[in-house]
Amino acid sequence: MKRAITSKNMYRQLLADLIGKDSYRGVTLTYSWLANQFGHFSLGFIPTFLFFLFLKKRMADTSAALWAASVISAIWLLFETFNFLGPLLLSKRGDVKKAYVFQPAWGNIAFDTVTDLLFFWFGAFTASLCCAPTDTALMIAIVLAIGMIYPAYYWYLTKMYLQTPAYPFQFRLSQWNTEKIPDTDVAIVQRFLDNEVQGMHLFLFGPKRSGKTSLSVAIATELSIRHHAAVYTSAMKLYCMFFEQDEHATADTLWTWRRASILVIDDINPGHPIKEELISPERFLSFVDTFSSNDINRTVLKQTNVIWVLGDDDDARKLSERWKNMLHSIGVEKEKMLSLNLELAETPVF
């Protein structure tokens, strides 16, 4: 299930970002993106203006304005090309390949780089028009403005998908850096990411500092960037959500956990050094069934892609088997259940 953010939702968010003081309401990801792009525009505009003041003493104003914008645009093109291709080429040579457990989404990064360049260039040629208007600068600025429409729409929408789940931190999958995960587990994560049907479940077992939470956030973040509706919650908060009804959601709620396509349930059990199993699969299911006489919570869990962040698994307690049996009892096929058992990381995964 995917839920599209409507143009009305985007308009309301844009008004909230543009009107009001962030000193008392906090800063959203969409607001940060707008501020970042204004910074890129300014880094094209201001250097062009200063370079124009230098060049106008040596040539005609119109020529100085065009040359200033062109040179500054070329400088930013070289900088961003190096900024993007440097890590990519090193990765292909194998120099930094070992640093990535999961390879970055290079296509997405390339699109972000192009977006930044458009704002740099637009700022440069806007400055050129302000300094000495020419038909050439005007045509380039118009083409750039038209070219910016889709990237601006895409990234603003993407930031809305990223801020709605309320992730505890920003973290992409390529940043998850530990060598204690075999290739088979990498393939499991990739299978979950590439899954095109609903109802896939991924169990993450491991002790404290094994990277369970960061991996769950990273996976869900990649899916949010693909415009899947995601919700991040702790188990304790979810127990309360089981009793809520969707019609009680506020107008600012784009989707509830029942309408999400990706659900991350964190901190179900703490894991080592706490040995006790605080929440058993049977106890969890009892909360699921407490809502009402219907099976809405069971149905949602069955049909949603869920990442379960649990504690340690071992042969004695057989947690993986017990949690899978619980899901199977509500109708989830065993083929849709994946499991990873992470080891203790020697250094923080950040």
Rank of each mutant, 00 (worst) to 15 (best):
F205L: 01
L310Y: 05
W323P: 08
T184I: 14
P165E: 08
L223E: 02
I225C: 06
W308H: 10
C131Y: 01
A105V: 00
A249V: 07
S339K: 04
L223I: 04
S292H: 10
M160E: 10
D17Q: 13
I46Q: 00
V231C: 05
L223H: 00
P47I: 01
T113W: 08
L338F: 12
M241K: 07
A230Y: 10
W67K: 09
G147A: 15
T48A: 00
D95E: 15
L77G: 09
L301N: 00
K92G: 14
I75V: 13
K98W: 14
E276N: 03
I72G: 06
D246V: 07
W155M: 15
M337V: 08
F51D: 05
A187E: 09
G206M: 03
K336P: 05
P281E: 06
S42D: 07
R58L: 13
I330M: 15
R259W: 04
G86D: 05
D135Y: 15
P182R: 03
T164I: 10
N297C: 13
G26A: 10
V186L: 03
L117N: 03
F111V: 12
P151L: 10
V101Y: 02
G271A: 00
F51M: 10
N177L: 11
F51I: 08
A251S: 03
P133L: 11
T233C: 05
F287P: 06
I142T: 15
L138S: 12
H228C: 08
M236I: 09
Q103K: 11
R283F: 09
Y150P: 07
N294F: 00
T178E: 09
T126M: 12
S174L: 04
K324N: 15
F242S: 00
V186P: 07
Y100R: 06
K56T: 08
M10F: 13
V300Q: 07
L144W: 13
M326K: 12
V27L: 11
V264P: 02
V96L: 15
P207Y: 08
D17N: 15
R12W: 13
Y24S: 12
H40L: 06
